[in-house]
Computed example of a mutant assay.
Amino acid sequence: MYIINKIHILRKEIILIKKTDKKIGLVPTMGNLHDGHIKLILLAQKYSDIVIVSIFVNPMQFNCLLDLKKYPRTFKEDCEILKQYNVDIVFSPNINDIYPNDIKNQTFVEVPKLSNILEGAARPGHFKGVTTIISKLFNLIQPDFSFFGEKDYQQLLIIKILVKELNYMIQIISLPTIRLKNGLALSSRNNNLNSKEKKIAPYLYKIIKKTCENLIKEDNSIRQEIINLSKNLLIKKGFSIDIFNIYDCRTLKTPSKNSKNIILIASVWLGKTRLLDNKKIFSTI
């Protein structure tokens, strides 16, 4: 496994790989790897000759300095895991190389269609940071494929739009959310849950599943009533709700009554930890 932390070295390596016509798969991460990342890597190996995992805690997507400081850095442990799974290259650049000037003066990439609603409204500037670093990684690594989990569904849609509108010749491949046996979606944020919160957290997906079942069974006229009852149940369990509603899978707008592409998206707080999850109700995509 080749660990690269300098952009000029990465560029030379990419030129050599491209000369061999080998397909490159990119798995972008911020480190603190879990089984969800491993599943993405295994998927990448099915599509690609060379798998590159990036590890970069991106300051531009944090709208809270404290959250940035608290984000777990486990680079040594992550590299040990990646060696076990025969990853070809780890790209872990220095912040000053990625953002040579102050971040406030940094050229950025933004997808205006979806970046300022839902999670984007709750976390101003977050998706601008995501799309900027992803664009940089795409430019540097020039992958044929890039792999993302579906837990951050809004992020996945935004990256697909980014690729289409900026004419990247990259195929975005997504992986369904990886969960613990109790249903909790895997996330680096889960490390911030205390022992009591870890017992409560699985109720989020249990309530999401039950809500989706009820929405399928019942008439459209009581959609909002079903959603409100689920919200109340979440609050009773100890969650604080930012987002819990149904949206069109393609546009993230309120779905029409006859829509066949509906997803329930949840973004909640449990103590000081933000948890994201979703479940498609109807989908043709």
Results as ranks from 00 to 15, higher is better:
K280W: 04
R189Y: 09
Y2S: 11
Y205I: 01
I38V: 11
L234I: 09
R274E: 07
K83E: 15
L252E: 12
K104M: 12
D219V: 02
N261P: 12
I141H: 01
L66W: 07
K12E: 09
N194V: 11
R250G: 14
K209I: 11
F148I: 05
G36M: 00
Q45N: 15
K260F: 14
A201H: 02
K23T: 07
N261S: 15
F75D: 03
L234K: 08
I246D: 09
F62A: 06
Y153E: 07
F282D: 12
D102F: 11
P255H: 11
G125V: 11
D144C: 01
T107H: 14
A185M: 04
S230D: 02
K253M: 14
L65W: 13
Y47E: 07
L68E: 11
S240A: 14
L233I: 05
L184D: 02
I17E: 02
N101K: 15
N139Q: 07
S221F: 13
I172V: 15
Y71W: 09
D49L: 05
F75Q: 09
Y85S: 03
G149L: 01
S259M: 13
G238A: 07
K196G: 05
I7G: 04
L140I: 10
G238D: 04
A122C: 14
I281C: 09
I208H: 02
F62E: 08
F244A: 07
K231F: 08
H37W: 01
K257D: 13
R250A: 14
L186G: 00
I15C: 04
I89E: 06
K210I: 02
L184Y: 03
I52R: 02
Q142W: 00
K198V: 01
E218G: 01
L233E: 14
I235E: 15
I95A: 14
Q224H: 12
V53C: 10
V57R: 11
A44T: 08
L184S: 03
P28N: 06
L10K: 09
D152M: 08
L215N: 04
N182K: 06
K136T: 07
I41K: 04
D21G: 07
K272L: 13
S240D: 15
K151L: 01
L137T: 03
I222Q: 05
I161E: 02
I3P: 01
L175T: 04
D102L: 13
I89G: 05
N86W: 08
E213R: 08
N101S: 14
G271E: 06
L184W: 03
L114W: 10
L186I: 03
T273D: 08
I14C: 01
I200P: 04
K280R: 15
Y168R: 00
P124C: 07
